[in-house]
Amino acid sequence: MLSSKQFIVSHAPFWHNGTAVHYRNYNWLLALAPAVAAGLTYFGVPALGVICLAVSSAILWEGLITKLSGRQVNVGDGNAALVGLIFGLLLPATAPWWLVLSGTLIAILIGQQVFGGIGGNPFNPAALSWAIIFLSWKTFLDFDSMLANYSFNFTPYHPLVALKAFGPQAVAQIPLLDLFLGKQVGGIGTTCGLALVTGGIWLIARGIVRWEIPVSFLAGVLVSSLIFYVAAPAKFAGPGFHILAGYTLFGAFFLAPEDSSSPVNFVPMLIYGATGGIMTILIRNIGAYPDGVIFAVLVINLINPLIDKIRPQRVN
């Protein structure tokens, strides 16, 4: 007999702040505005092209896919725009148009719509798409190569690639303040720590993102990188560098806390975030990739349903 279940929801507790989906997504978009502004400041018109194409194509892909599949078209809730914007901000400013279109298609179709759309995706759609693009066209996400025609007034190579290839001595002269202010080679919207922290605090203050995930993610990065650093300072960089370089802050505030793919209970949120931070450092320090944030986020997305079962049990 066919199941009559139409809608399966997660277990309690539920948390409702009295607002609608579009309110949440518009706040996410607003929180990313400082990162967009920083990206445009450092990378100029090409970055504007990538961001605009990513947002517009994500909206149009979702509209097209939901129309073709006969489902309700919900592009007005801002979710597609948000997925597109997050994906665009992860890219280098010189990303070719076909890469942006492919990435947003993957994010919307494979990342979200095949699972039923908003709320059904087990992985962060933008992170999943980035990973697929990275494994498919690696050189187009090589920031050193893609930004080679930019003349920067700061260290002109990707700090995490230099750390991985040449050791902590190669990045020892990079001031942490430079990293915090966005003076580093990287994604359009992922380099400026100041902008990301501002946006992240806005989301937390508005009640859109719970503090537990970003804070525990950063704590995981801090503690694990500190252990490596104390054990072998000549081989590993310190926690300040790891928190401010690469995708760390973007991952902590804008990738890991994605609504559908992150836990809702207090202890699971702490475990989820901390695991993401620890995985990031493990990948960076002993793994194959210079920046482990995306893969760490995908791993914690994967274990999310399992750890979210850690909750008060009913006593019979």
Partner: peptide
Amino acid sequence: HRTVAYAVAVHLLLVA
């Protein structure tokens, strides 16, 4: 909302 979203998408596409 949907109309606004499509309008924004078209304008951003032109800018891109």
